[in-house]
Design a protein around this nucleic acid. Structure first.
Length: 147
DNA sequence: GCCAACGTTGGC
DNA sequence: GCCAACGTTGGC
């Protein structure tokens, strides 16, 4: 799962009460469907810092609440407001995530790209800008071994 | 700041 | 349904 560290970093997550935060702001249908259909309590996730000096994977968290309406879409004053989403028929969903650990170092995007074992990783496939992407068990293990 | 690679919008 | 215009993402 991607986040711009200037907006919300892994350190921000670690500093939250209970080290839990709702993952709001996903406004892409493909990403929403993954949130809705695939994320289960206890699933691990890799926390990726995007749009920053050193983009890369910085740590690990886990899903602690399954999909529910993204309430930031209901607030006209919120940057993620969407008039087409309502309490009765919510268009956008989010999960809650819990901090697990921060890596000793950032596993950089450049490094991920040069590893043949990760050639199929959704994150590095051309043009993939989704904020939420799947990781296979083998990719997961390999990425953790890089730390 | 540039620009590729998207996704969305809306006229037709 | 097509597609041009536009907006966004995000690496570099």
């Amino acid at each position: 799962m991607k986040s711009e560290p200037a907006e919300f970093s892994i350190d921000d997550l670690a500093a939250r009460p209970g080290q839990i935060e709702h993952w709001d702001g996903v406004r892409n249908y493909q990403a929403r469907n993954m949130i809705r259909d695939q994320m289960k309590v206890g699933d691990g996730l890799l926390f990726y810092h995007s749009n920053c000096a050193t983009p890369g994977i910085v740590g690990q968290a886990e899903i602690c609440r399954e999909a529910y309406p993204d309430f930031t879409a209901f607030d006209p004053g919120h940057p993620h407001y969407d008039a087409a989403s309502s309490l009765e028929s919510p268009r956008w969903l989010m999960v809650d995530v819990r901090f697990v650990r921060k890596f000793r170092r950032t596993i950089t995007l450049a490094e991920l790209k040069e590893r043949p074992e990760l050639a199929g990783l959704a994150l590095i496939r051309r043009g993939n800008r989704l904020s939420v992407m799947p990781v296979t068990a083998a990719q997961w293990r390999f990425i953790l071994s890089l730390e």
